[in-house]
Structures are given as structure tokens and as C-alpha cells.
């Protein structure tokens, strides 16, 4: 709101100064403009941005911390924000220590979880995206797979774990399997929907130009579907990160999920709370990174 009057003030003297040669006037005027005024303008703009963007979230955070403190006050088992903070500082002062498989730094735990998510999600993308393209392109395949997809998609991710353990006989691939099977659906479905939403005009162009199936894919389908695909990828990564904690709790090994379970057994509640924040923050960062990536593919 403060910006508009400031620019007005800057503009009016220019047009008033010399009506005869308005074309030549602005350049020297800009040069002579006092630096202090420019500085105030940017300060005003900064203040404006502050009230607009920083104050409300900050207020929310304060309310949240107050509520948490209050809760901690009345339930002695639950550590308050201050106690948790001190514990976090200590924990993150040495994130990469290694005292054997059951006692590793938080950094290692996070990295191992990310690795599992990356593998499970990567495999899901490798299979899910091409599958989505084919389902969207060939209606026969769509009708063929529709009942299976709608049957399997709503199944809780962890219900797949026993199957994984049975087939792979090992915890690590079973966890990756759970991530794979639960994160594949958003990519399949969004990609397929994207293909069916490609404007008929573009496909008519392809037909009039008599493009080969490869050219249709690379020049029309793929770019047209990319935004939908990116939405699918974002949802998939979200699901994968959501599921990893639960999967690791059950399968064990180094990872943020098993770490939570371990700390629960040690009754180290501060660490559990820290883990919740860590999971939340990493999920947020992944989401933002993918949003930024997706924005590059908009036309």
C-alpha cells in the first residue's frame, strides 16, 4: 500500500519540471534524486513486506509454541520447547557419529531414510510415468488397468509390507517396496489424466503434419503432460516421505523412522519431538524444491 504514493511523488516533479522537453527530462532527474529518499522507499517497501509476509506466520509460530509450553506444563512427561531446543542443539552438534548399527548420528539416519525414499520413489517413477503415458494414450490399456488400479490404490501402504518381507526375505528391500507401491499411483494417475487432457487441437496438428509416434511423444505429448506429471511426482514424493517413518519403524535399520522407535524405547521424548520436526522440515523442503522445478515447466 505504501508503494503507490511513493512512486507518485517520484513521478509528479518530472512532468511538472519541464513540459517542453519531457523526453529529455527523466534521465538527469533520476541521477539527481537524493539517495536518502530511495533508501526510505526501500525501507518502506521492506516494512510493508514484513507486515504482509513475516508477521502472520511468526504469530502462528508463537501461538504454537505457547500452546506447546502450556501442554508441557500440565503433562510432566512431555518436554517443553526450551528443553527440546537444548536437546536439539546437542543432537545436531555431532550429526555424523557412528557407534555401530544401532547408534548413529541423526545425519546418518536422515540420509538413510532419504536413500530409501529415493530408491523406492525412483523405481516408482521409472515404471509409473511410462505406464501413465501408455494408459492415457491407449484407451484399451486404460480400461484394462482401471479396475486393478482403483482396487489397489486405496490400500494402506503398510499392508504391502508383509508381501515385501515374504518376497524379498529382507527388511531393506521390503521397505523400498512399500515406498514404491504406495508412491507409484499418483504418478500413474496424474500422467494418464494429463495425456487425456492434451488439447485436441495439438493432436490434430500432429495428425495434419502426420508426425511419427516418436515425434508425437517428444514434441506434443511429453511437453503437454509435463505439468501434470510434475504434480504426480510431487504427490508421490509426499506420500513416500509420509510412509518412510512407519515403514522403518517396522523394518528397523538405520533411518529416521527406526530412530524414533529406538528413542521411544529409551523414553527419550525430546528426540521423538525433534524427529517430528525433522521429518516435517525435510518434507517441506522436498515439496518446495519440486514446486520450483515444476514452475520451470509451465508455459
Amino acid at each position: 500500500m505504501n508503494v503507490a504514493p511513493m512512486t507518485k511523488k517520484d513521478v509528479i516533479p518530472i512532468s511538472r519540471n519541464d513540459a517542453a522537453s519531457p523526453m529529455q527530462q527523466p534521465a538527469p532527474n533520476v541521477a539527481q534524486r537524493p539517495a536518502a529518499r530511495k533508501w526510505t522507499a526501500s525501507l518502506y517497501g521492506g516494512m510493508d513486506a514484513l507486515t504482509q509476509w513475516a508477521i502472520p506466520p511468526l504469530l502462528g509460530l508463537i501461538v504454537f509454541l505457547l500452546g506447546w509450553s502450556l501442554l508441557a506444563e500440565y503433562s510432566p512427561q512431555l518436554p517443553g520447547p526450551v528443553k527440546t531446543w537444548h536437546s536439539a542443539v546437542e543432537l545436531f552438534s555431532d550429526p555424523f557419529y557412528d557407534n555401530g548399527p544401532n547408534d548413529q548420528g541423526i545425519g546418518w539416519n536422515i540420509l538413510h531414510s532419504l536413500e530409501r525414499v529415493g530408491m523406492g520413489f525412483g523405481l516408482a517413477a521409472l515404471i509409473g510415468i511410462p505406464l501413465g503415458f501408455m494408459i492415457g494414450r491407449f484407451s484399451f490399456l486404460n480400461k484394462m488397468t482401471a479396475p486393478i488400479i482403483s482396487l489397489l490404490r486405496p490400500v494402506s501402504p503398510l499392508a504391502w509390507l508383509p508381501i515385501g518381507l515374504l518376497v524379498f526375505k529382507e527388511a531393506q528391500p521390503a521397505a523400498i517396496w512399500v515406498i514404491f507401491i504406495s508412491s507409484i499411483w499418483p504418478m500413474v494417475i496424474n500422467t494418464a489424466v494429463g495425456v487425456t487432457k492434451v488439447p485436441v487441437d495439438y493432436l490434430n496438428v500432429a495428425r495434419v503434419l502426420n508426425l511419427s509416434e516418436f515425434r508425437i511423444f517428444s514434441k506434443i505429448l511429453f511437453p503437454a503432460v509435463l505439468p501434470y506429471m510434475m504434480t504426480g511426482v510431487r504427490l508421490s514424493v509426499g506420500v513416500a516421505w509420509l510412509v518412510i517413518v512407519a515403514a522403518e519403524m517396522l523394518t528397523g535399520g538405520v533411518g529416521i523412522g527406526f530412530w524414533v522407535w529406538d528413542e521411544w524405547n529409551n523414553l527419550n521424548v525430546e528426540h521423538i519431538i525433534i524427529a517430528i520436526f525433522v521429518v516435517g522440515i525435510i518434507g517441506l523442503l522436498l515439496e518446495q524444491a519440486l514446486l520450483m522445478l515444476a514452475r520451470r515447466f509451465e508455459y
Binding site: 487441437d201 495439438y202 496438428v205 502426420n210 511437453p223 503437454a224 508455459y299
Partner: peptide
């Protein structure tokens, strides 16, 4: 029986591919 390169079409809404 179908489109062919002997018939060039200019569409009602230009139909350019926005990514090219």
C-alpha cells in the same frame, strides 16, 4: 481417408505448440 501432407491446414485458433 485421413490427413495428408498434400493438404495444409490453418486452424481456427492457430494451434501453435506453446513450448516451441
Amino acid at each position: 481417408t485421413g490427413p495428408g501432407p498434400d493438404r495444409g491446414v490453418v486452424f481456427q485458433n492457430h494451434s501453435l505448440l506453446p513450448w516451441l
